[in-house]
């Protein structure tokens, strides 16, 4: 378990915002570099444009709030659904799913509060998956 001090977490929080902004850019770019069979970690690197630290920090924070969700397999199921993280997965479909999950969460009001930030639950789970995929 990684413990973040307030100052460290503030830095991570700042970078999260950059991540939230860059996510649509990654989504647009993804079809040009389709998913390969290097698993969840590799896929997440692509989603987050190789800048994973801040998502990991937020993910840890979420897992501290929701310890019952600290399962990589379970989170992958929530984030990816029926789409497996293997070769040949239609990347565009996965990205569409991520966007749709996020949209549905906001419509339903299923938000998660992390250090005051009000995020879609699926967003937080994506970060939690990153946290479990990139242990310190």
């Amino acid at each position: 378990m990684i413990h973040f001090g307030r100052r460290q977490f503030c830095k991570a929080r700042r970078r999260l915002l950059a991540g939230l902004v860059s996510l649509p850019v990654a989504i647009v770019a993804w079809p040009k570099s389709p998913f390969r069979s290097d698993g969840i970690a590799s896929a997440l690197r692509r989603v987050f444009n190789d800048s994973i630290d801040h998502q990991v920090a937020i993910g840890h924070r979420y897992l501290a709030q929701e310890p019952g969700e600290a399962s990589r397999q379970w989170l992958a199921g929530q984030v990816c659904g029926d789409l497996s993280m293997s070769a040949g997965v239609p990347a565009q479909a996965l990205l569409v799913r991520l966007r749709s999950l996020r949209h549905d969460d906001f419509c339903r009001g299923d938000l998660v509060e992390i250090d005051g930030w009000l995020l879609a639950r699926s967003e937080a789970r994506l970060f939690a998956l990153a946290a479990l995929s990139f242990p310190a």
């Binding site: 009001g109 009000l118 879609a120």
Partner: peptide, 24 residues
């Protein structure tokens, strides 16, 4: 109210909201 703003800005894909934590 802040929560509703967060929901709508998120749904519209235009921003993320941070709530003053004292309100929680």
């Amino acid at each position: 109210t802040v929560n509703l703003v967060a929901q709508e800005f998120g749904r519209l894909g235009v921003g993320r909201v941070q709530i003053n934590q004292l309100l929680l």
